[in-house]
């Protein structure tokens, strides 16, 4: 046998982790599931980015804070006595108003400016939303109104290969909702007139204008769609932990997902999210001890970096075509 005590480094990296997976399949399945759930939520965030990037070529740094803002609005409205379902409807309305406001105040004055300018504008938007959010809702963490929204809680557990695998009902809901959302958006983009118009705008502004597509309208639609995705993400993330401004940094987790999946691909965002989610969890459980644990926080970026070397346009990103 290759592996004898004391174990060599090669053995610790390439043999033992897989042996553990094989020996204790229940723990492996549990890890996979948790990675999958985390991945689904990463996918949701990445999806918000992809929507806006597809239609305007802008990397929207504010997506993270939009998640927080949506969740805070929902919780805040409920706190002042609005029934949960009505609060949800009102939050959707708030996201629509936000989309209109962003189009009018941020994007329209900057039309035809280089992408970097728009990117910086989304930074500004981020800090505005942080300040505005804190002013209205206060800075303290809040609890998501999970029960009131009829989101099932509790645990589902079943026996598996001599062990026990536990699944949070909340997580199952998250996975189902995210899948639905993605399916609808994918069809929306590929099959509808507006979807076609969105892709058209992404490719060429002036050509889109010449066939009568209204840029302003398209921007409102994508920012609203991104707002809805942010709301769903906010509810799901909020229900798993809490609603606070700290959630904003999950936006950074979307970066490796986007590098993996490609900035313009909806399926890419999903698969990228899942790979990152699962990779992170599996890495943490099986290889984490080698590095003194805590590799979860940087492994995603490593995966993305390695990936970048081989496929710069991402898994499903549009092929880079350049004529010389």
């Amino acid at each position: 046998m290759l592996c004898v005590k004391p174990y060599s480094m090669f053995c610790k990296i390439f043999i033992i982790p897989f042996y553990e997976m094989w020996e204790l399949p229940d723990i492996f399945v549990q890890t996979l599931w948790e990675g999958l759930v985390g991945g689904t939520l990463y996918s949701l965030i990445a999806l918000g980015f992809v929507l806006i990037f597809k239609a305007s070529g802008v990397f929207n740094f504010a997506q993270g804070i939009m998640v927080v803002f949506a969740a805070l609005s929902l919780v805040g409205l409920h706190a002042i006595g609005v029934p949960a379902i009505l609060a949800l409807a009102l939050t959707v309305l708030i996201m629509l108003v936000l989309a209109f406001a962003i189009e009018r105040v941020v994007l329209r004055p900057l039309v035809n400016q280089p992408d970097i300018i728009l990117f910086m504008a989304t930074f500004g938007l981020t800090y505005f939303l942080i300040g505005f959010g804190e002013l209205i809702f206060g800075g303290d963490p809040k609890v998501m109104i999970t029960k009131q929204l009829y989101i099932p809680t509790g645990t589902l557990s079943f026996d598996f290969a001599g062990g026990r695998v536990e699944m949070q009902k909340l997580d199952i809901t998250a996975v189902v909702v995210a899948s639905l959302m993605v399916a609808v958006l994918a069809v929306f983009f590929s099959k509808t007139r507006i979807g076609r118009a969105l892709r058209a705008v992404a490719d060429s502004h002036k050509a889109a204008l010449s066939v009568g597509i209204s840029l302003n309208q398209i921007w409102i639609i994508v920012w609203f769609a991104a707002g809805l995705v942010a709301l769903v993400t906010g509810i799901m993330w909020g229900a798993r932990s809490e609603v606070s401004f700290a959630l904003e940094i999950i936006a950074l987790k979307a970066l490796p997902v986007l590098i993996l999946g490609g900035f313009t691909s909806i399926p890419g965002a999903i698969v990228g999210g899942l790979i990152i989610g699962v990779g992170e969890k599996v890495g943490e459980i099986y290889w984490g001890p080698l590095f003194g644990r805590g590799i979860e926080s940087w492994l995603a970026y490593m995966i993305a970096l390695v990936f970048l070397l081989f496929r710069p346009q991402g898994l499903f990103g549009e092929k880079i075509i350049e004529r010389v």
């Binding site: 007139r193 979807g195 076609r196 058209a200 992404a202 490719d203 002036k206 050509a207 889109a208 075509i321």
Partner: peptide, 28 residues
């Protein structure tokens, strides 16, 4: 000025944008 990543068919279909009126819900 074309939509470079879209197919010929989609490009020409984009020209019909203004003539399609059914709500996107049904298109979906």
């Amino acid at each position: 000025a074309l939509f470079k990543s879209m197919t010929t068919l989609d490009n020409i279909m984009a020209g019909r944008t203004l003539r399609m009126h059914k709500s996107f819900f049904w298109q979906l």
